[in-house]
Design a protein around this nucleic acid. Structure first.
Lengths: 145, 145
DNA sequence: GTATAACCCCGGTTCTCCACTTGGGATTGC
DNA sequence: GCAATCCCAAGTGGAGAACCGGGGTTATAC
C-alpha cells in the first residue's frame, strides 16, 4: 500500500470537494486541477474511478462538476486509496499462484503487515485530513509571526 | 512496502542459507536456485545486494558459495526487505519534494501507516520464518494422513 | 601451475505500469 | 444552438522489474 502520485492527487482533489461539501454546489475538474496543480486530464480519469466506486458523483453539462456522495467524516482514507490503487489486482495475484509452503508462509506475514497499515488508513477520514491540514496552517501562521 | 518477486526470492534463498547455518559450509547459487526454482543469474544479483549490506558473505573459488553473516534469529525480515527493495529511494523522495501543506499532512499519515507495517516486519526474524514453515509442513503432513 | 568452479561486473532485452496526453463524443444550462 | 462540462478510449514516453549473456577475477584441488 504505497503512496503513489495517483493516490495523492485523489486525496488532494477530495479535500477540495470536502471543503465544498456544505454549500452543495458541484466543483469542476478544472477548478480542482488549478488549485492543487494537478494535470486536469489526468485528474479526470481519477475522478472517473472514484465515481465508479461511489465516492463521488458527477453532474454533467454546463455548471456541472463533482460532489462527494457522503459526508467527509464517512469516507476513510483506506476506501479512497484501495479504490484508486485497485486492490483486486493483489487479490488475483494471491489466488492465482499455486504456492509452495515457503511462499505461503511469507505471504501470511505480508498479509499481516498489510493489515497493520490498512488499519491505520481506515482510522482516518477525509474530515480528519482536512482538520489536520487546518491545524498545520495555524501552526505555520504562528511561526511566521 | 509491497511483496515483490524480488523480495520473495531473497527470503527463500535466505531460508536455504539459514538451514545450512549450523554446519558452517557455504551454499552455492546453483544449489539455492535449483531448490527454490529461482533463475540463477537473477539470484546472483540479489545475493550480491545482500552481501553489500552485510546480511550474507561469500566465499570464492572451488567449493565456495554463500553463508549468513549472523545467526538466523538476528536477521529481521524488515532488514532483508529494505535492503532488497532499497529504502533510500523513498527517503530521497520525501526529502526532495518542496511540499504544500496538504501534501505534508498526507505524507505524515502515510509515514504512520508505513511504520505500522515495518513494525510487523521487524518483529519477525529469519528463524521465525523457518519455524513457521516447519510448523506448516507438520500440519500438511497430518492432513495428508 | 593449471584447470576448474565459483563469484563479480556490466550491459542489453522484454514486459508491465505509471503519469500523462490526445481526440473525439454525450449531456446540460442558458 | 452553442458553450461549458463530463465521458470514453486509445496512445506515448520513461522507469523499473525480471531476466539473459558475456567476459572477467579469484581461490581451491590436483
Amino acid at each position: 500500500m504505497e503512496l503513489s502520485c495517483k493516490s495523492e492527487y485523489a486525496l488532494l482533489a477530495l479535500l477540495e470537494l470536502a471543503a465544498q461539501f456544505n454549500c452543495g454546489e458541484p466543483l469542476q475538474i478544472r477548478q480542482i486541477a488549478k488549485r492543487q496543480e494537478i494535470p486536469d486530464r489526468y485528474l479526470e480519469q481519477l475522478l472517473a474511478t472514484l465515481r465508479r466506486s461511489g465516492i463521488v458523483r458527477s453532474q454533467r453539462g454546463a455548471k456541472g462538476g463533482y460532489l462527494l456522495t457522503r459526508e467527509p467524516w464517512k469516507i476513510t482514507l483506506l476506501e479512497i486509496v484501495s479504490c484508486i490503487e485497485g486492490l483486486d489486482k493483489r487479490q488475483a495475484e494471491v489466488n492465482s499462484a499455486p504456492r509452495t509452503v515457503e511462499g505461503n508462509v511469507v505471504l501470511d506475514i505480508w498479509q499481516e503487515a498489510r493489515e497493520a497499515s490498512e488499519t491505520i488508513l481506515k482510522s482516518y477520514t477525509l474530515q480528519d485530513l482536512a482538520d489536520r491540514r487546518d491545524a498545520q496552517r495555524q501552526l505555520d501562521l504562528m511561526y511566521y509571526i
